[in-house]
């Protein structure tokens, strides 16, 4: 019965072209796949060498006492247990969270307001857009040095401004109560430009028909913003939030240039503490354990951010 079916001329006529067509489609798909791999190969090689292997190495080293020389032993969870009792780590952990909680939303709000302002037809628009973006493209070292001068207790601009208004002088970066807020000011200032550009692009993508329709229907400016513009900014908001969380958690150069984590541990943050443990104290295993905790913390914050924004998995 099977032979009869296979030998049937009708069957042969109908199946032969279909097989050829199927083969051709598969071949094209394979070629496309292969081409795709070739296209992503440079990025993939880069990611494997500079991201994936180091991340795996961090997970391995976190359970060792590796310290650039001497014998390396597996120490289980000892590094994590030790971190829990480490004053410097605890201060860095708390400072990082406070820094992120203040800097991310404040910078986002200011950047949005600036973007809305720069989305209007005002004089010197290009100048203002450039001026707000300049801190983003300026080297952090230069930014740090300039702010060091601004916050100098003796001859800095900040105290001169306070004096002008008859207010007392502040010790800014050397006062443990003021040092972290001072750095937050710098962090907010430095982060506005990049956020502003994204918001500006998103604002210019809001359909004008919707705004016009809402206006014709009698909606005031606030109602238009809240019901038309704000929802349209959703994807941009999400992108800004995620990149802001990651960048504030990774703040390092600013701390390195200005306060070195001091006074005391008032401005110590996780990345700076990891750097100190790895390259100043030469405890790479310990620093790797700290890195894992920081990765988990960033993940937790991103998750919370997603929940707060009501983002779905397709965002």
């Amino acid at each position: 019965m099977t032979a009869t079916r296979a030998d049937s001329p009708i069957r042969q006529r109908t199946t032969a072209p279909r097989k050829e067509k199927h083969h051709s489609k598969g071949s094209i798909l394979r070629h496309q796949k292969r081409a795709g791999w070739w296209f992503i190969m440079p990025a993939l090689v880069h990611s494997v060498i500079f991201t994936i292997i180091p991340v795996i190495a961090v997970f391995v080293l976190a359970f060792t006492d590796y310290s650039f020389g001497g014998r390396t032993d597996f120490v289980g969870f000892d590094n994590f247990v030790e971190l829990m009792g480490d004053n410097s780590f605890r201060a860095a952990f708390v400072n990082t969270i406070i820094f992120a909680i203040v800097v991310v939303p404040v910078a986002m709000v200011i950047a949005l307001l600036v973007a809305i302002g720069l989305n209007q037809r005002i004089r010197g628009l290009s100048f203002f857009r450039t001026a707000y973006y300049v801190p983003t493209v300026t080297a952090s070292v230069a930014v740090g040095v300039v702010w060091l001068w601004i916050f100098n207790p003796g001859s800095g601009l900040a105290n001169e401004v306070l004096s002008f208004f008859g207010l007392g002088r502040a010790s800014w970066l050397v006062d443990p109560d003021l040092a972290l807020p001072s750095l937050m000011i710098i962090g907010i200032w430095q982060g506005i430009g990049a956020k502003m550009i994204i918001y500006l692009a998103a604002l210019q993508g809001v359909p004008t028909q919707l705004i016009e329709a809402a206006t014709i229907d009698g909606a005031n400016k606030w109602t238009v913003f809240w019901n038309v513009t704000w929802p349209a900014l959703g994807p941009a908001q999400f992108f800004v939030l995620i990149t802001s969380i990651v960048s504030t958690f990774q703040v390092f150069d600013l701390i390195y240039i200005t306060t070195k984590g001091g006074p005391g541990t008032a401005t110590n943050v996780l990345v700076f503490d990891i750097y100190n443990n790895a390259f100043q104290n030469l405890q790479l295993g310990y620093a790797s354990a700290e890195t894992i905790i920081m990765m988990l913390l960033i993940g937790a914050f991103i998750l919370i951010g997603r929940r707060l924004q009501g983002a779905n998995t397709n965002d």
Binding site: P176, P263, G264, N268, Q280, N281
Partner: peptide, 19 residues
């Protein structure tokens, strides 16, 4: 010493700041 040195700095700061 490098490890101890990194503890020295912030801890002495705490004393000088009356903490």
């Amino acid at each position: 010493w490098l490890e101890v040195r990194s503890i020295f700095g912030p801890t002495i700061d705490e004393v000088l700041l009356g903490q």
